[in-house]
């Protein structure tokens, strides 16, 4: 029954991306091309990130939390933001509304991230005889990651694509984007330094992603309103 378990976990990990694409108007406007382009940009960004990590970071001897190393990691994490910026602004899309553009980019980004980081462990691990909760949590993490990437892309599109936004909201937008970009480091801090267990960390990720999504949505709709 291990294949069954593998399929279950895969559905939990990748299902939401598919559902999101087919349920929202993304599918109606045929934005798959944008998603694929975003995924390709993600691949390039991941490569650059890997090179940076390999050059700038030493291999940790133990599993402890080293502030300097973590700071470097945060800076390297911002390469992601740069990648998203490139994907949102530089890619030429067919006439596609801003609304759909950030969704498509976020979706492609998150999906590429899931495939790259989670498919191989799933394939190797979840088909083993031993049952662990690990892969179920990993699937939930993928869900949280999707929500966060979408929020970040939404904020990114607000920052870079929308010109006439309310002045008062600008600092909030930037602060939220910063928070979202540092989220991977925050979870890593919780996991390593505070030694939270996986269920707690995943719970935190899900919760924070929902909160961030709500905030981003509010910001986005506030900017939509005619001034």
């Amino acid at each position: 029954m291990t294949v069954f378990h593998f399929l279950n976990c895969a559905a939990l990990t990748f299902g939401p991306h598919v559902v999101y694409y087919s349920a929202t108007p993304l599918s109606e406007y045929d934005t798959i091309g944008t998603c694929v382009k975003a995924a390709v940009v993600y691949l390039g960004t991941a490569l650059v990130k890997l090179v940076c990590l390999a050059t700038l970071l030493k291999v940790p001897e133990n599993d402890s939390f080293d502030p300097y190393q973590e700071l470097m990691k945060i800076f390297i994490g911002f390469i992601d933001v740069a990648g998203l910026y490139f994907a949102l602004t530089q890619l030429t899309h067919r006439n596609i509304s801003q609304n759909h553009k950030f969704q498509a980019v976020g979706l492609g980004w998150a999906f590429a991230d899931s495939v790259l980081h989670r498919l191989a462990p799933l394939w190797i691990g979840a088909r083993g005889l031993e049952f662990t909760w690990e892969y179920i949590f990993q699937g939930l993490e993928a869900n949280a990651n999707l929500v966060m990437t979408l929020s970040l892309a939404a904020l990114g599109s607000l920052m870079w694509l929308r010109k006439n936004k309310p002045r008062t909201l600008v600092p909030i937008i930037y602060a939220c984007a910063l928070l979202l970009a540092t989220m991977p480091s925050i979870t890593s801090y919780l996991r390593r330094s505070l030694e939270w267990q996986t269920p707690k960390v995943v719970g935190f990720e899900l919760f924070s992603s929902l909160v961030m999504a709500f905030i981003s949505w509010q910001l986005f709709s506030a900017c939509q309103r005619p001034m």
Binding site: F4, A11, G128, L129
Partner: peptide, 18 residues
């Protein structure tokens, strides 16, 4: 090797939940 395994019922239940 001793493996802790999930039962079929659990897998089915999990499928339903997902």
């Amino acid at each position: 090797n001793v493996y802790q395994v999930a039962s079929v019922t659990f897998d089915l239940l999990f499928l339903l939940v997902i």
